[in-house]
Every structure is written in structure tokens, then in C-alpha cells.
């Protein structure tokens, strides 16, 4: 038994480095998207939206805490979720580039959330039945919240896409801007393959098929046009090659832990 009473992670030692990396991807996606979403707090376009965005951010930070906690446990070096979040530099972050992009207007924020949620939902659905019980438990817990987030984001994409001329134009511009970043979510590398082969994670190409169907349906209903451009232009985040934006985000997020090493808060 682990200290908190849960079963320890059962994996081959040979898989630990890949699994640590893979768990950091899950945790970092949630952390960085949660951070971006939290930037809206107090600045939303309507009070209800302000509350919903803060709620989404809160859910994501919660997911990050669970994934990074498990990552730290798998790593076995005595680090904590907080240390992973606050004391790694950009090159050790494993989130996709899509989630670190600046928010842009509220339309871009919602479009990004939709494109990510549609992936996140499929991924967590699969992981919630993963034979690795620790992974399955976290996924099942997060899935409930992500299912709601996807519903909300889809609904807003449809309403804004099919709203006024201006809201339509803004949503199309947001989609065009974000599209070339979406492919990274489905671009498998050695880490993804190792996790799939170990039976812990699903095959990303299966997720892509379902993601594409959801995205097409919603964009159709929203009267928006799927960009013809390649969707995997901007990749590398999962391997620690990020955009220029991540460094600034981390400088802000990690400021206190960096300025006052070892202090407790």
C-alpha cells in the first residue's frame, strides 16, 4: 500500500521513465490550460461566463494535481506535484503547444477549450477503463468534469459560430489560428507508443478518428469551415520544445517558489 492507502502503481521498472513522461503530459496539459483559463477570472464577458471559466480552471488544476502526484510517485525520486509544477523549467514541461498559446479574445479561448476538450474527453473515456487502476481512477474522476466542459464549450462554439456576423468571423479566425496546433495531440512518439503497447493508454489514431467526427459535427452546426491547412504544423511541446509563450507563463506561475526557495506557503 502507498502512504495514502491507495494501491501502489504496478508497472515494470523499464516503463517508468516513459510513464513519468506520459503522466507529465496529462498533468501539464491540465496545468497550463488551467493557468490560461484562470487568467480570465474577473475579466469575463458576462458574470455567468466568468464563473464558468473559473470553474473550468479549478477543475483543470485539480486534474493536474492528481496526474502530477502520480507522476511523482512513478518517478520515485521523492518529488511532489508542487515541485513538478513549480520547479521544472520549460524544456521539462510536456504539454502540447495548443494549451500554452495566449488566450486571445474570449472566442479564441472557447475555441481552444473546445478543440482540447474534444480530445481530452476521448482520452479520459479510454483511460477510465485502463487496466492500470490508479490511472483509471484519476481518469474517471476527471472525465465527469471534462464531459461537462466539452458540452459547455461545444454549445458556445455553436452559438457564437451561428450568432452575429462578427461572432462568426471571430470564431472562424480563432479556428484558423488554432487548427495547426491541434495535430500534436494525435502525433504519437516513442512515449505514446510505449504506453499503448503496455496496454495503459489508447492508440492515439483511434482517438483522432472520434475527435475528428465530433469536431466536424460541432463546426458544421456552428456554420464554421474546417481549415484546409495541415493540422500538425506546430508540434514538439510533448517533447519539451515549446513556443516562446511558455517561458513567460512559467516565470509568472513559478515566481514565488523561485524567489523564496524552500519557503512554505
Amino acid at each position: 500500500m502507498a502512504l495514502d492507502g491507495r494501491d501502489p502503481v504496478k508497472i515494470d521498472d523499464a516503463l517508468r521513465p516513459a510513464m513519468f513522461d506520459w503522466l507529465c503530459r496529462l498533468g501539464d496539459n491540465a496545468l497550463i490550460l488551467g493557468h490560461r483559463t484562470s487568467e480570465w477570472c474577473g475579466h469575463g464577458p458576462a458574470l455567468e461566463e466568468d464563473i464558468a471559466l473559473a470553474n473550468t480552471a479549478l477543475d483543470l488544476i485539480g486534474h493536474c494535481q492528481m496526474w502530477l502526484g502520480l507522476a511523482a510517485e512513478v518517478e520515485g525520486q521523492g518529488r511532489t506535484a508542487d515541485q513538478l509544477a513549480y520547479l521544472r523549467d520549460a524544456m521539462a514541461f510536456r504539454n502540447v503547444k495548443l494549451v500554452e498559446l495566449p488566450n486571445g479574445d474570449i472566442g479564441q479561448t472557447i475555441m481552444r477549450e473546445f478543440l482540447f476538450d474534444a480530445f481530452h474527453f476521448e482520452l479520459l473515456t479510454e483511460l477510465s477503463t485502463s487496466p492500470n487502476t490508479r490511472v483509471a481512477e484519476i481518469a474517471a474522476k476527471a472525465l465527469k468534469e471534462v464531459a461537462y466542459q466539452l458540452d459547455r464549450a461545444s454549445d458556445l462554439v455553436v452559438r457564437l459560430g451561428d450568432g452575429t456576423e462578427e461572432s462568426h468571423a471571430r470564431m472562424q479566425a480563432a479556428l484558423d489560428h488554432l487548427w495547426p496546433y491541434t495535430g500534436e495531440m494525435f502525433t504519437a512518439d516513442a512515449v505514446d507508443t510505449a504506453m499503448t503497447e503496455a496496454g495503459i493508454a489508447p492508440d492515439l489514431s483511434d482517438l483522432q478518428t472520434r475527435w475528428t467526427a465530433t469536431v466536424k459535427d460541432i463546426l458544421d452546426e456552428a456554420t464554421l469551415t474546417l481549415p484546409e491547412r495541415r493540422f500538425d504544423v506546430h508540434t514538439g511541446g510533448k517533447q519539451g520544445r515549446h513556443t516562446e509563450h511558455l517561458g513567460y507563463l512559467l516565470a509568472e506561475m513559478q515566481f514565488l517558489q523561485r524567489a523564496y526557495p524552500g519557503a512554505e506557503w
Binding site: H35, S38, E39, C41, G42, H43, G44, L47, E48, D50, I51, A54, N55, A57, L58, I61, G62, C64, Q65, L68, A81, D82, A85, Y86, E252, M253, F255, L256, Q257, A263, W265
Partner: peptide, 28 residues
């Protein structure tokens, strides 16, 4: 809200977010 993105731990960040969200709720 000025400090949410700089909260020093994940837990403090969640607590602060929840609090500021409550304030929006009170407004509502």
C-alpha cells in the same frame, strides 16, 4: 484575481480561484 496566476502552490491556487469565483457568485 491579480495573484491567481502567481499563487505559490497548487492548493493555494485552487483555494484562491474558488474564493474569487465565490465573489462573482455573490455578485450574481
Amino acid at each position: 484575481g491579480n495573484w491567481i496566476t502567481r499563487a505559490p502552490t497548487l492548493e493555494r491556487k485552487q483555494i484562491l480561484l474558488a474564493k474569487v469565483q465565490d465573489e462573482a457568485g455573490h455578485g450574481l
